[in-house]
């Protein structure tokens, strides 16, 4: 029982980065921009968050904001490549990851942020609720971002489904020619989606350092960005399904330290492989159960050039 409560109480903290990153990817990709740079934006956010905590000594929530902003800044480079210059989106996404890996390692090393721990975001206190047995630990001893994440999901789903902006964004991602004909500024919508999406991914990265590890190490996102990309495919670009998937991955990640804590003797590095192996498994499962509708936006990955002469 103790094991179970300890485990489940840790799940939200591990699930939040996956959830926010997946949501950011969905926003971005709904506009038709394939974003393989998630790992890079997470690194950027994580580094910026840690840097803000260490050098600016700001409130953790401000540090998270800085994480999102830094990631958004990086996304402008990506937007320049794929929206303005119409560079291949796969190459652009990959090169952003490499760029971010180099940039974050460079900045963090030269600023001396590497391997320095700090006190990050704490848990909220709901008074008596937090001390309830079982339920209190799992639901009422989490940091504020956990609760905000659910709110962000709800808002995003509403915007995508039932507002002009959301509908037009989806139209841009499904059929940019049709959207253009309807007077929608395709490039602007894509830019907006990329920036907002990457802010969310950067926030996910910032959460990793500011709330979870409370320390920066080079390359610390450890493939979570790639897992988030797989999650989006698994969720067929549906935000709520992506949240569910994030929780599943949160469970797996939370299990790893728990198993060591209860003295289970397993080969350490095989345990660390677990998230990647599970992701592979999830991808196989997704393609095996693929129905007609993959949910993939119709124009995903295709640059838009207005009205080519036939």
């Amino acid at each position: 029982m103790d094991f179970l409560v300890n485990w489940l109480a840790n799940v939200p903290g591990f699930a939040v980065p996956f959830a926010l990153a997946a949501l950011g990817l969905i926003v971005c990709e709904k506009s038709g921009v394939l974003n393989l740079g998630a790992e890079g934006y997470m690194l950027a956010g994580a580094m910026a968050g840690a840097g803000a905590m260490l050098s600016l000594d700001v409130h953790p929530l401000v540090a998270l904001g800085i994480a999102a902003l830094f990631s958004a800044l990086l996304s402008l480079l990506f937007a320049l490549l794929v929206i303005t210059l119409r560079v291949n989106q796969v190459i652009s996404g990959l090169v952003i990851v490499f760029f971010a890996q180099g940039l974050t390692a460079l900045i963090a090393t030269s600023q001396g942020w590497t391997n320095r721990s700090f006190s990050g975001l704490g848990e909220l206190n709901f008074g008596p609720l937090s001390t309830l047995p079982v339920v209190g630990r799992i639901f009422f001893q989490q940091d504020i971002v956990v609760y905000l994440t659910v709110l962000v999901f709800a808002v995003t789903v509403h915007v995508l489904r039932a507002t002009h902006v959301g509908m037009r964004l989806r139209a841009v991602g499904e059929n940019p020619e049709a959207a253009d004909a309807a007077g929608i500024p395709v490039g602007l919508y894509r830019l907006g989606a990329v920036v907002v999406g990457c802010m969310l991914i950067g926030l996910a990265g910032g959460y990793l350092t500011v709330a979870v590890s409370k320390i920066w190490v080079d390359g610390m996102s450890g493939g979570r960005g790639w897992i988030a990309i797989a999650l989006v495919i698994f969720a067929r670009w549906q935000p709520w399904s992506a949240l569910a998937g994030a929780v599943i991955f949160g469970c797996i990640e939370a299990l790893i330290p728990r198993m060591a804590a209860i003295g289970l003797q397993l080969p350490q590095y095989f345990v660390l492989m677990l998230p990647y192996v599970v992701t592979l498994g999830v991808m196989v499962w997704t393609s095996l159960s693929a129905s007609r509708h993959s949910g993939q936006p119709g124009a995903l990955g295709q640059p838009f050039v207005r009205e080519e002469r036939r």
Binding site: H164, M167, R168, E174, A178, A179, D180, A181, A182, G183
Partner: peptide, 27 residues
């Protein structure tokens, strides 16, 4: 009306028409 229709496939007919008229609240 172009030779190649400029319609968003997963949207309904009404949503396709609505797309060009973002004035006022969505509802």
């Amino acid at each position: 009306v172009h030779q190649h229709y400029k319609l968003v496939k997963p949207f309904t007919g009404l949503e396709n028409i609505l797309l060009s008229h973002p004035q006022g609240s969505f509802r």
